[in-house]
Simulated assay, not measured.
Amino acid sequence: MNLDFDPKLLEFRKKIRSFFERDYPKDILAKVASGASLTTPEVRKAEMALGAKGWLASAWPKEHGGPGWGIEEQYIFDEELERAGAPTVTPMGVVYVGPVLYTFGSEEQQARWLPGIADGSVGWAQGYSEPEAGSDLASLQFSALREGDEYVLNGTKIWTSAANHADWIFLLTRTSQEAKKQLGITFICAELDLPGVTVKPIISIDGKYHLSQCDFENVRVPVSNRIGEEGKGWTYSQYLLGNERTSYARIGGKRAQLAGIRSIASQIPTGGNQRLIDDNAFAARLSSAQIKVDALEITTLRVLCSVKDGGAPGNEASILKIMATEIAQEITSLFVVAAAEHGNRKFADSVSPEWTGNAAFAAPGVATYFGARAQSIYGGTNEIQRNIIAKHVLGL
Rank of each mutant, 00 (worst) to 15 (best):
K321L: 12
I322H: 01
M323K: 08
M323Q: 15
M323Y: 04
M323L: 13
M323C: 00
A324F: 04
A324G: 08
T325E: 06
T325M: 06
E326K: 08
A328I: 03
I331H: 07
T332D: 02
T332L: 00
T332K: 01
S333C: 07
S333R: 08
S333W: 07
L334D: 10
L334N: 09
F335D: 10
F335S: 06
V336F: 03
A338R: 02
A338H: 03
A338Y: 03
A339Q: 06
A339H: 07
A339L: 10
A340Q: 12
A340F: 13
H342T: 02
G343M: 15
G343V: 15
N344L: 14
N344H: 05
N344S: 07
N344D: 06
R345N: 10
R345T: 13
F347Y: 09
F347S: 06
A348W: 06
A348C: 05
A348L: 12
D349V: 00
D349F: 02
D349A: 15
D349S: 15
S350F: 05
V351A: 07
V351Y: 01
V351D: 03
P353F: 11
P353Q: 11
P353H: 11
W355S: 05
T356G: 06
G357D: 13
N358A: 15
N358S: 15
A359I: 10
A359N: 11
A359Y: 10
A359H: 10
A360T: 14
A360E: 15
F361R: 01
F361L: 02
A363E: 15
A363H: 12
A363C: 09
P364M: 03
P364D: 06
V366H: 05
V366I: 15
A367N: 02
A367L: 00
T368F: 12
T368D: 14
Y369G: 06
Y369P: 02
Y369D: 12
Y369I: 03
G371Y: 03
G371C: 02
A372H: 10
A372S: 15
A372E: 13
R373L: 15
A374D: 11
Q375Y: 13
Y378Q: 05
Y378M: 04
Y378I: 14
Y378H: 11
G380S: 07
G380W: 04
T381W: 04
N382K: 07
N382S: 10
Q385V: 00
Q385N: 14
R386G: 08
R386Q: 11
N387W: 06
I388E: 14
I389R: 01
